[in-house]
Amino acid sequence: MLAAQVLVNAAVLGCLYACIAIGFSLVWGVLNVINLIHGSLIVLGAYLAWGLYQWTGILPWYVLVLTAPLFFGIGYLLQRLLLNRVITAPVLVTLTLTFGLDLILNNAMIYFFKADYRKLTLVPSLGSLSIGGVVVPVDRVIATAFALVLTGLLYLLLRRSRVGRAVVAVRLDRDAAVLMGVDVKSIYAIAFGLGAALAGCAGVLMALIFPISPLTSSAYLGKAFVVCVLGGLGSVSGALAGGVALALVEGIGAVVVGPSYATTLSFLLLIAFLIVRPQGLLGRKGFE
């Protein structure tokens, strides 16, 4: 029974992890930038959901409609105005720049929202499902479903739309994309905007499940990174595989060595993967 519960937990958590990681993976794959502000954007999204529910009673999943364009705009402008200036610079520069931006956003959130942990508690509570002894809270199921929907939408966007194909083209071969008449600067901004939008939406979903505090942003960032490495960079299916793999390892690890070693465990896994299988579980070049 314990095994079944661990598996179900891992599946649910894994989809959420994938949702956290997918925007990060997109930006990394297309722009070759490690976006350290990703974690703080997730937390900002969570605060948006929390605030709107507190003041107006709007349920978090409706907030997604507002979050996506808002965060897309934020990301688009960040890329256009700041990151674009250093996009060709060495790794250290782009990395440190996003770190600086993250410090600003995180400090602003601590300043305005305080560092207290808050929880979005739905009234009335949605309760939980119990199927054959395996218990899953309904709010988690809903969050997971929306995480899958978001992931699917991104997949469709990248596969079917003109802009999406251009994003994939830039990821595959930047120079060839330029020769085909793709405006790389605007594709970069769109990809970064999409990454930010996904971060914001992931944050809204996280608000349903986890406590909210600016201090949690680095944990989200760490998860996103591990998922990208495990699953392979730059593919939707890879992010899903990586998410479930991480959740599974964490779930089993929590049973075997205790939950307080979660970070150490995922770090060891990360190092092992980077050395043994650097392309990840489903690694391919190309965002498909």
């Binding site: 990394w28 070759n32 490690i34 790794v91 250290l92 990395l95 680095s218 760490g222 990174f225 490495v229 307080s260 070693y261 970070t263 150490t264 770090f267 990360l270 190092i271 980077l274 050395i275 650097p278």
Partner: peptide, 27 residues
């Protein structure tokens, strides 16, 4: 071990080293 990784990978691995040591000391 760590310096077999390059670029972003090394940066993040060294970043998570901090978290790992903190967790070990905490435990």
């Amino acid at each position: 071990v760590l310096l077999r990784l390059r670029g972003h990978y090394f940066a993040i691995a060294s970043l998570s080293l901090v978290e790992v040591l903190r967790e070990v000391v905490n435990n």
